[in-house]
Every structure is written in structure tokens, then in C-alpha cells.
Design a binder for these strands. Structure first.
Length: 816
DNA sequence: TCCTCCCGCCAATGC
DNA sequence: GCATTGGCGGGAGGA
């Protein structure tokens, strides 16, 4: 608008020579000179002479001048006034003041860089913790944020949309989003990688590169046809937003715009990184692929340009998230902007394979509970076979209906309803769950695809030896209580505690799902030093090696743990499990406090649960999550109570897990640290929640108590003949972890001549690649050898990448 | 000159 | 009918 006005103005005869850039300063000058009494031919518009508006320079001065300039009447009035009391000295002074103030004003105006989306995103991210412990205070009000960050809301949308694509936020309602942080990130990346693989992005990238190599990419029809054919030949040339279960979009607008939205682009962009080797994607290639997918027919330059613009937007946000970073790829054709993945390494989709197996080999009741392949498919390829259509509502309904039915069926026999404190339901339900443990475990182990689930079930418990010394002999195998068959989200019913009070504790379903469906993701979590020091150092070594290969200057060796985690993951580093338990408890307690980033020094009583905890995000149980989300969030939630979610979580699958404090500890603070676990207490349970002293917690460290997870694990393994009867497997499988690089070929192994001239990046997520599960399941002669794994001489495992490699021409990557 | 990407119009959708 | 979302592309700042 301003530009237009300026342009109009400058079109006046004697100003027509003004070729000043449309920059505000210059335009202002032109306006200012307009006010000069004696309008000399404007030779140097930048050096106005005298009379200037009287007003001191204010932020509105420009506006005033523009108004004045736009209205001859006002202008002449101004001029008359100026002339009437016109001591030239005064004017001179005014002019000086004006110029000075204008400079000041311009200086005070944020530069373009200061207004960049990346910086804005940084500010935005700084407002929220990477791993929010609860949903409380993790609501995002767009208006407020925009105001506080002093930007228009449009920009916030850009950020939020990208974050949404990573499931770091989810839309709750108009103007409101929920902040999930990085809780879902690894899972999302897993999913994206899987989709990217299935979408044959690797091949597409290679094809584009090959084509570029052969001849300049152009936009003529013949080549496009060829491209179309090649893209069309890929199985999923069209796909929509990759949703995590329970995080489906509800807004019609969102759905209807899905295919073009920044969200989808963002996901696809990320996919390109995840399937690429090395994980460097040039903007050009990305744009072409994204365009190619959508509309091959009109692969025109404007579309390309627009795509690039959007990719920059996305890249800015992803950069702020430290998932990618800008590099330059120097090829024969020149230097091209590109981005390099610096986010957490996403392991090959082991689980994905298993999922397929699962759905084939497992008995219905089990397979239905397992990380639904179908569900994933639904979400990942909702439009499979169709082009440019969003999922039809009726299909959504149908799916949900099916899911509901499934849930009912699943939950019917054993799943308890949400149980609050001191109900007998817990007790009655518990045995029933317990009775299933062996069978379930066996089921899980019977299929290779399931053994991780079994372990997952065991995990929460194993890690925190310091925890749960509860007198709960009645719980020989608490961990197994997370029925694998429910995707580990089923309610876990624990017996009454010594206090005689049961507690309804809601495990965040995402946790369960994480470990169940995407087992690798939880392995990315930091491990408590006390139990996994060795592992950590191994991991650190590997990481260090990787980074060094890339020219890392960082001191990963000096401070191994540093490379494992960043800001939000420090807790585990140097703490004993019990300390960590305490901290975790503190964190939980903190959730009830209004402010984030609060120091957690005081008030260690973790069970002073006068608060209500929220799940930080989506509901993982595949079938029912939708409900959780769909239930929406009332405004009361803002007050910190998630009554709706109570309902939601009362879903048998969603899982209510009544347990004692120590049990909670055991589950809540696994050595694995299965991502921050969100625990939610129902109001009733809150009411009944006893206050345990810290000492009580500490004293619950049970060296004597049998380690249930270990028991279950050993029992199971022995039961299915995977280990000899006498052999005992450590409770904490993590101890057996060995690092695996999913990209061993990253720089050295590849045939490419890749020159990475850049600072190495330390993955934000700790890289604890493989579970011990696979290790001991790979016992020589064991029945469950994982084909994709191979042992290296150094004792570490490596996963055969199985990636398609095409020798590439010389490629240089340089940092900006 | 080209790379980046801010900016805000305005259409689609929501409420 | 107003508000919210967000696709989109002009064009400015910066290298």
C-alpha cells in the first residue's frame, strides 16, 4: 500500500525522474521534498532542504506524511502553515531533528533479518520446552503469541503449520494449539521415513538427479511426461498428510487444503532427508519432487518458484528446530542451496516390517492391538490410488466406526474402565490382566514382529531399580501388566498398595505407543548413567565418530553425553536412577505450576499430587485416540483439568493404570526414559492421592524386590525356548544396547565423492540404536535372528541400510 | 544478479 | 457476517 502510494506520488511530473528504490527511506524523502515550499527540480532527492513536518518523528510520522502526500488539500494546508511561521532556522532545526529521528526510527526498525521466520521461530520455540511434561500451560494461543512476539498472526501460522507437520503441536480449537514439543518427534520421523520409503522418494531423487545430470532440467512437456511416468510408477505418487494416530486433523479447512498445505510440504520435505543418503537435499530437487507429485502437467516456473519460497519457509522452521541446516551443494552445474539433516537419526524401519508380519501372523486379538499397520496405512496413505482428493468424511466415519468396534471388542473382557482411587475394580480387574501375561507374552514372542512389543512391555519397569520397592509382592510382574496386546496402552491394574489405596494413573498413551509401534524411538532416549554408562559411552563414541567423519570440531569425546542430548535431556546424564525418579516426580509436580522453566530445587515431595496432569499430546492407541482428540478441549482445560480426557482415557485401551506410588515410579521412570512420560491423575485419584514423603520414595528403592520385568522377560524367553532355563537376561535390555548407525555409509562408505565442508552436527536425539532385545534374540542359533542386522567385528551391530545407491557425480557440500 | 523470504492480499473455511 | 486460516506471489533486502 505504501509502495503504491509512493509510486503514485512519484509519478507526478516533476518527480518522474525519481528512480529511488521503493524503500521506505527513499520514499519518505520524496514525500518530504514534496513539502518543500520551493520545489526545485529534484536532483538529489535524498538531500531534502528545508521545511518538514513539524511533528517530531514518531512511528506514525510516515503515515502522516503519506496521508499528507496523498491529499493535496492537506498538503497545501500543511505548506501554508509551514510558510506562515517559517523562520528558516526553525525549519532547519526541525529538519535536522527530522533526519535524526528518521535515522533513529529506521535503526529501531528491525531489519529484514531480524524479522526472519527462523528467528521468529526461535523465539517461538523458546517459549515452550522441548519436552513438556504436561499439557498444562502448553496451550498456544495464536493471538497472544503473535502479540508477544510482535508479529502478525500470519507468520505464526507458518511456524505452527510446520510444527504441526512434526506433531509438535496440534490444533485444539480456533486460535488454540497444544504444544507437544518433541515427544512425538521420533515417532513422527519414523513414520515419515517409512512413508518416504514407501513413496519411493529415494528413487525419485535419484531420477531427478540423473536427469539433471544428463541434461538441464527444463519444463517442456516431453520431459515432464517422462517424469510423470516415473513418478506415476511409484506406488504412492499421491499422499496426504501423515497423521499420527490420534492426531488427525479435524478442521475441514485443514483437510480440504491438506494436499497443498505447508504441513504436507513440510512432511514431504522431511521425508526426502530421511530417505536420502547422505541426508542432504537441495531445494531444487525437493521442489521438483514436490511439484512432480502434485501437478506434473504444469511444471511451470512460477510453480517452481512458489514451491521454493515455501520450502524456504519450511526450512527456516526446521532449521530453528535444528533438524536441518543450510549447506551448499556444489556440483558441475554450480552451487546450489541445499539443506542437510541434522536431526535425530531415524533408524531403519524395523518395526515397520514387523508390523506387516504382525498383521499376518498374529492371532486376531493380538494383531488388532498391535500398532495397526492398517491404521498407519490409513493415515499415511489415505488417498492411495486417488489423486488430489482428501479423505472423504464418510470414510473417516467408517474407519472410526470400525475402530470403535474394535476397541469395544478389545476392551470388553479384561480392560477395566477408568478406575479411580480406592475402587475395587482395580482389584478385580487386575488378576484378569495378570492372568494373561504369560499368554500375551508368548503370543508376542511367537512372531518376530512382536517381540519388541513384549520387551516394551517389560521395559518401563526394568530400568528403575531404585524405584518401586513397594510391598507389592502381589505384583510379581508389574511391567507385563502393560498388555502388549493392547499396544501397551491398556490399563494396567495394580493391586492396592500398602497404604491400601489404589491410584488411577494414566500413562500417556503416546508412551505406550511409542515403544510399541516404533520401538526404536524410545531407544533414542537418554539412559541413566547408573545403569547404562557403558552404553552411553559406546553411543557417544559412535556419534563422535560420525560427527568426526563429517569434520566435527565439537568435543563429543570430551563430553560424550553432550552429544547425546541438548537442552531438554540433561536430567538423565549424571543422575542416579533414584535421583532421576525424584526429578521426574518433581517435574510432574511442576506441571501444576503456572510457569515453565521453573527451578526445581524445592519441594521435592513428588506425590503431593494436588495437581492434575495432562497428557502432552495425542493419544497413541490407534483406535481410540481420535476420540481423545476429537473430544476436543473445553476451556476448562485451560484451568488445568482435562475432564474430557478422563473420559477419553477411561477408554479401556487408552488405559487407566492404577498403581502405587512406587509402581508409578517404576513405570514412570524407566531407565530407558521412554520419552517424558506424561502422567495424568484423575480428579478422583487426585483426591485420594496420598502424600508420600520423599524418603518414602527413596526407601522404595528395592534391592531385594525381584525385578518383575526381569522375571517376566526371563520367563518369557525361557518359555519360548529362546534362552536356556538357567540363563537370566538382564532386566534392563538397554544394557545390551549397542549402537548402530543407520547410515554407516554416510560419508565414508558411500561411493560418492562427498565433501562435507561444514560443521558437523550432533544429533539432537541421543542415538541409542538398537535394543538388547535384538541382541539376545540374535543369540547364535536363536530362532529370531534379525536378518537386517549384522555384527561387526567391534561387537557393534549395524543395520544394512538397504538403501538404493546410485553413484553420483562429484558433489560438494559446503556450509554457508 | 541472484538468493532469500517478508509481507500482506484475499479466498476458503470456521464460528 | 465477521474471524480465522493459510495459499500464494510480488518484490525488497542482502550477499
Amino acid at each position: 500500500e505504501g509502495n503504491q502510494k509512493r509510486e503514485n506520488h512519484s509519478s507526478e511530473p516533476h518527480r518522474s525522474i525519481l528512480k529511488t528504490p521503493l524503500k521506505q527511506a527513499a520514499a519518505s524523502h520524496s514525500v518530504l521534498t514534496e513539502l518543500q515550499p520551493d520545489c526545485q527540480p529534484l536532483a538529489t532527492p535524498t538531500k531534502p532542504k528545508e521545511s518538514f513536518p513539524v511533528d517530531p518523528w514518531t512511528p506514525t510520522s510516515n503515515l502522516k506524511m503519506l496521508i499528507s502526500a496523498a491529499s493535496p488539500e492537506i498538503r497545501s494546508r500543511e505548506q501554508r502553515r509551514e510558510l506562515s511561521n517559517n523562520p528558516s532556522e526553525v525549519l532547519q532545526a526541525k529538519h535536522c531533528l527530522q533526519v535524526h529521528c528518521k535515522d533513529e526510527y529506521e535503526k529501531s526498525q528491525p531489519s529484514r533479518k531480524e524479522k526472519s521466520l527462523g528467528l521468529l521461530c526461535h523465539k517461538f520455540l523458546a517459549r515452550y520446552p522441548d519436552y513438556p511434561s504436561t499439557a498444562e500451560n502448553n496451550y498456544i494461543c495464536l493471538d497472544e503469541v503473535a502479540e508477544e512476539l510482535n508479529v502478525e498472526r500470519r507468520r505464526i501460522y507458518d511456524i505452527v503449520n510446520v510444527l504441526e507437520s512434526l506433531h509438535m503441536v496440534s490444533r485444539l480449537a480456533k486460535n488454540r494449539y497444544a504444544w507437544h514439543g518433541r515427544h512425538n518427534l521420533s515417532k513422527t520421523l519414523q513414520a515419515l521415513k517409512k512413508v518416504g520409503e514407501e513413496n519411493k522418494y529415494t528413487q525419485q531423487i535419484q531420477m531427478i538427479k540423473k536427469r539433471e545430470h544428463e541434461h538441464e532440467f527444463d519444463f517442456d512437456g516431453e520431459k515432464n511426461e517422462e517424469m510423470a511416468r516415473s513418478f506415476g510408477s511409484s506406488e504412492h505418487s499421491e499422499m496426504s498428510f501423515v497423521e499420527l494416530p490420534g492426531m488427525e486433523f479435524r478442521a475441514a479447512s485443514v483437510n480440504s487444503r491438506k494436499d497443498k498445505s505447508l504441513r504436507v510440504m513440510s512432511q514431504k520435505f522431511v521425508m526426502l532427508f530421511l530417505v536420502s543418503t547422505p541426508q542432504i537435499v537441495s531445494l531444487e530437487v525437493a521442489a521438483k519432487i514436490l511439484i512432480g507429485e502434485d501437478q506434473l502437467e504444469d511444471l511451470d516456473k512460477s510453480k517452481f518458484k512458489t514451491k521454493i519460497r515455501r520450502l524456504y519457509d519450511i526450512a527456516n522452521v526446521l532449521s530453528s528446530l535444528e533438524l536441518i541446516k543450510k549447506v551448499h551443494v556444489t556440483e558441475e552445474r554450480g552451487r546450489k542451496p541445499a539443506f542437510k539433516w541434522t536431526g535425530p537419526e531415524v533408524l531403519p524401519n524395523i518395526q515397520g516390517t514387523k508390523l506387516e508380519t504382525t498383521s499376518v501372523t498374529c492371532p486376531p486379538p493380538i494383531s488388532e492391538f498391535t500398532p495397526s499397520k492398517e491404521q498407519c496405512s490409513k493415515n499415511l496413505f489415505p488417498l492411495k490410488g486417488k489423486q488430489n482428493f482428501t479423505r472423504h468424511p464418510s470414510l473417516i466415519k467408517l474407519v472410526k466406526s470400525i475402530e470403535n468396534d474394535r476397541r469395544k471388542i478389545q476392551s470388553a473382557p479384561t480392560s477395566p474402565v477408568k478406575i479411580s482411587a480406592s475402587t475395587d475394580q482395580n482389584l478385580s480387574a487386575f488378576p484378569s490382566e495378570m492372568a494373561q501375561v504369560p499368554a500375551i507374552a508368548k503370543h508376542q514372542l511367537e512372531g518376530q514382529s512382536n517381540f519388541i512389543s513384549s520387551l516394551v512391555v517389560l521395559k518401563p519397569e526394568a530400568p528403575c531399580p531404585a524405584a518401586g520397592s513397594q510391598p507389592q509382592q502381589a505384583l510379581p510382574q508389574p511391567p507385563a501388566l502393560c498388555p502388549p496386546s493392547h499396544g501397551s496402552v491398556s490399563p494396567v491394574i495394580l493391586p492396592q498398595t500398602h497404604s491400601g489405596v489404589s491410584y488411577a494413573i494414566y500413562l500417556h498413551p503416546s508412551q505406550a505407543h511409542t515403544v510399541t509401534t516404533y520401538s526404536p524411538s524410545f531407544m533414542l532416549q537418554p539412559l541413566p548413567r547408573a545403569s547404562v554408562t557403558g552404553i552411553k559411552s559406546i553411543s557417544a563414541k559412535v556419534i563422535n565418530k560420525i560427527t568426526t567423519e563429517e569434520g566435527d570440531n565439537q568435543t563429543a569425546t570430551d563430553e560424550p553425553t553432550k552429544s547425546l542430548t541438548t537442552k531438554e535431556r540433561p536430567t538423565i546424564k549424571s543422575e542416579t536412577p533414584s535421583q532421576r525418579c525424584l526429578k521426574r516426580s518433581q517435574a510432574l509436580q511442576e506441571n501444576n505450576l503456572p510457569k515453565r522453566y521453573r527451578s526445581d530445587k524445592e519441594n521435592l515431595d513428588p506425590w503431593l499430587v494436588s495437581s492434575t496432569f495432562f497428557p502432552s499430546g495425542y493419544l497413541i492407541p490407534l483406535a481410540q485416540c481420535t476420540h481423545g482428540n476429537k473430544a476436543g478441549f473445553s476451556d476448562e482445560e485451560k484451568a488445568g483439568i482435562c475432564s474430557l480426557q478422563h473420559t477419553t482415557y477411561s477408554s479401556p485401551i487408552a488405559g487407566v493404570i492404577p498403581m502405587t506410588a512406587s509402581e508409578l515410579k517404576a513405570v514412570n521412570i524407566p531407565a530407558f526414559h521412554i520419552t517424558p512420560l506424561n502422567i495424568m491423575l484423575s480428579p478422583t485419584s487426585i483426591a485420594a492421592a496420598p502424600v508420600l514423603s520423599t524418603s518414602s520414595l527413596n526407601s522404595s528403592n528395592n534391592s531385594s524386590a525381584p525385578n518383575p520385568s526381569s522375571s517376566v522377560l526371563n520367563f518369557t524367553l525361557q518359555h519360548v525356548g529362546l534362552i536356556p532355563a538357567g540363563v537370566q537376561v538382564p532386566a534392563n535390555p538397554v544394557l545390551q544396547h549397542v549402537p548402530i548407525s543407520s547410515q554407516p555409509e554416510n560419508s565414508s562408505h558411500s561411493s560418492e565423492n562427498v565433501n562435507l565442508q561444514e560443521k558437523p552436527c550432533v544429533p539432537k536425539e541421543p542415538q541409542v540404536p538398537q535394543t538388547a532385545t535384538e541382541n539376545f534374540f540374535r543369540t547364535p542359533g536363536g530362532p529370531n535372528t534379525v536378518p537386517s542386522l549384522s555384527a561387526n567385528s567391534d561387537g557393534t551391530n549395524r543395520i544394512s541400510p538397504g538403501t538404493l545407491y546410485i553413484p553420483q557425480r562429484k558433489l560438494e557440500v559446503s556450509e554457508d
